[in-house]
Nucleic acid binder design. Structure first.
Lengths: 304, 304
DNA sequence: ATGCATCCATGCAACTCATTCATCGATCGA
DNA sequence: TCGATCGATGAATGAGTTGCATGGATGCAT
């Protein structure tokens, strides 16, 4: 069978033109190479070199094999290099999973500087998981889960990277627009607009309305943040979104934000990873970058 | 060092998902594969597979290596296949060298059907040689020499494949146009047009004029047959060309051909090859095809 | 023409390395 | 809980590779 050693042999022999010098280059003996060529020729059933005086000349079959070696051998070397990089955690694929709509928008702020400094890391962002984000993490379907709901499990690690406040969004001329804060009962006559996910995963329900036993008059769902805010601005309903996310739109869409409850609804974004990957450089680097990115814990601390 | 066996191992292991079944496919034992994986992992300095219950899962490094194997292993198989074809003479590169202008035109007739039946043979036609056609043949610069001047040398074989007659070409209204044949002295008042090669290689000189001690009034050279015949047609001179070659133009250019001497000047085209290559199928096939191609010996024999 | 340096080929001995066998622990399904 | 199956491991075996010594061939220089 054609082996890699044969490729190196053919390549060096073609380059040097003699067994003796090729042997020197390959750190072997002339005899070993002579034996090797002979054996390979027997295996392939054809001469590869024709003895020409006291040097060698490639046969057509040898020329083909030599060209093959010239093309393939460097790929082996490159593959070994890349695998060494992966082994050192300098290169890899970071597959990020999202479990909340606003997370996507936030993670872009981290990804942008990350891809500039980690050119050898391929990024892959997924949003749908058959068995939920945690399951995808366990099944190695993704390497990092961006979520506001950490679920402590053995083998996983969740790191808070971003504190934010979930607020109510209303139109500029809404009756609640000038209130310091709203209470759950204030939302009972309202139409509530949310992303189309299970109610249990909506903070406005799980952390605000349901504990008080309240429900809005109507509940409609919208995929995109843009359109959601357009509807809110036109007075068609109210929504609950991260304060920082709404801030990105207030210059173009006339909406106001109001605190949910006297003390507000505090949220965090967590990055979930497998503890096995704690030593992987480029994953640790992403978490570190996320922590120090604008709008993260640190930035907010200086603001508060 | 990453070897081809490792490629097959990774490929089969990734496909089968278990050492045991991969071992069956590879005709080896589970133990051998286990040892091999372990050793490879030590060499590369990284895990390639993570034990998952009682099956295996690829690590990032393993996934990369597996993808590499998936890409490269088939190329090895293809290379072995091609080399086997070359060994059987079913595939190769036929480098043909030309030593005369009309040869090129004639060889096209042979090449055309040849490339249709020998799709695995690359053809290469060259016309300039540092040390002459014979030298190029010896130096393996070409594999076949098309020439009217065979030079018997040890290690070379020349096969006549085409008989033709060299004739004088004159304009339709030329004084010599109606002669049955011309003698050397007839050309002394003429302007002779030839290809731009050494006089020794021009049959009209070496086989007709020089033996009789004659020279034409003027001697001019032209690269292309087309223009040469145009000049002849306009009465600017006479030329000596193969009869079959002129015949290809007579329907478009008004010229006449006249025999050179009472018995004509007979010529042959030879295919020269190295005797070492006599067993190479596709070279032998070319010679055989050349012999039976229209306008060759056989065809001429039927013509009488 | 002759000697010398250099090249490749080859036989044999030594050794390296991959493979196998036998066995163990772990896991999964019945 | 038992049995089947999977991968891991250690020791022994043997095939295959390597190196040494040597011989024959070739080309260059004297």
């Amino acid at each position: 069978m054609l082996e890699r050693t044969h490729l190196n042999l053919m390549r060096e022999l073609a380059r040097e033109g003699s067994l003796t010098s090729a042997a020197r280059k390959l750190g072997s003996s002339q005899s070993a190479l002579s034996h090797a060529v002979r054996k390979l020729e027997e295996q392939l059933g054809t001469k590869l070199w024709e003895r020409e005086g006291r040097s060698l000349r490639l046969t057509p079959a040898g020329a083909h094999l030599s060209a093959f070696a010239q093309r393939i051998a460097p790929q082996f070397e490159h593959a070994e290099h890349v695998i060494a990089q992966i082994a050192r955690g300098e290169r890899g694929t970071l597959r990020i999973g999202m479990e909340c709509h606003p997370c996507y928008r936030w993670i872009l702020r981290v990804i942008e500087p990350y891809v500039r400094t980690h050119r050898d890391v391929d990024l892959d962002v997924k949003q749908k998981f058959q068995f939920g984000g945690i399951g995808a993490l366990f099944a190695h379907e993704i390497d990092m889960l961006v979520t506001p709901d950490p679920l402590r499990r053995k083998g996983l690690r969740f790191e808070p990277v971003f504190d934010y406040e979930q607020v109510l969004v209303v139109s500029a001329d809404h009756a609640l627009a000038r209130r310091a804060y709203v209470v759950p009962a204030d939302l009972e006559p309202q139409t509530l607009i949310t992303y189309p996910v299970e109610v249990e995963r909506l903070d406005i329900f799980s952390q605000f309305l349901l504990p008080a036993g309240c429900t809005p008059k109507r509940h409609v769902t919208i995929e995109t943040t843009d359109i959601m805010l357009q509807l809110v601005a036109s007075g068609r309903g109210v929504a609950a979104l991260p304060r920082w996310l709404v801030k990105e739109y207030t210059s173009t869409i006339p909406v106001r934000v109001v605190r949910l409850g006297r003390h507000g609804v505090a949220k965090q974004i967590f990055l979930g990873t497998r503890v096995d990957d704690a030593a992987v450089d480029y994953i640790a680097a992403f978490i570190k970058l996320a922590r120090t990115t604008q709008g993260s814990r640190k930035a907010r601390a200086t603001r508060g």
